[in-house]
Amino acid sequence: MKVQRWTPQSGVFIAALGAMVLVLAVGPTWFSAGVTDRLSALFVYVILGAMWNALAGYGGLVSVGQQAFFGLGAYAAIRLSHADVPVYLAVALAGLAVGVVSLAIGEVMLRLRGGEFAVGMWVVAELAHLLVNLDPLVQGETGTSLIALNAIAAEARRAYTYWLSLAAMVALLAVLFALLRGRLGTAIQSIRDDERAASSLGVNVLATKRIVFVLAATGCAMAGALWLASAITFQPKAYFSVQWTAYMIFMTLVGGIGTFEGPILGAILFFLVETFFGGRGVWYLVGLGAAALAFSLFLPRGIFGALEQRFALRLLPLGFRVVERTKP
């Protein structure tokens, strides 16, 4: 008997993934403008799905207020740029700035459990929205724009946003992967499964939750800032909308909550659904809600979870498996 992390399957998959990132990295040089824009959006969706999954799927913390960080990320980019920080640096730093703020928010919110945490986070998002509206720079719901972007040619802007989105996605997924593979991964999942038992085994519950909470907040804020870099205009209502959390929940539940690959698959599915049905009014949102409801009840591990079980998939070397040594 031996314990195995890497399998030939996961080796091939990681190599393929690396090759795909390299291909995507040179994308803007030959993609059409439309494809580049859409892919930038897809990268943001992947970030959102992965971050919400980190919180709920691994940490057991269901938040319906992650739009707080999405909106604050965009707002931080506006504020930093207004303070004469070079515009793409402002977009890149906004997520980290909000990550620092989220430390304070987590200090209170992480002591809540279950539904209290879920709706409590929504209140935080509402409050953040109202406070941002008070800023004279934002002018309430009128909003403002990332004016500094006007100085850059549209073509270059598109490529920079794409690269920044790709880099943020790869970096956040890598950090999450590294965290989950180490001690923290075991600790946070033990808290999700039974907080008291984990604590009695010496897991520092609050400190562990804090790391995941801050990572998810930073990621969602980066996503918000990147969305702003594409959209340019900042209307608080659009960024602090609970719809963003609805998207995250759809991606995670349909793809597979509690699996690393699931939300990425979910983000791709959401991207396709949005591309083909987004124009049909809100019936597509009814469909998203119904899918989230159905998956939570009937396929709680999502599409990837079901596939993983059915075909013994091990695409990423995250878990451990015991294998019997075959005799030579």
Binding site: A246, G289, A292, L293, L297
Partner: peptide, 12 residues
């Protein structure tokens, strides 16, 4: 967690 996720889906 499932009651939260299911009722949120229902709300949407």
């Amino acid at each position: 967690l499932v009651p939260l996720l299911a009722t949120f889906g229902l709300a949407i």
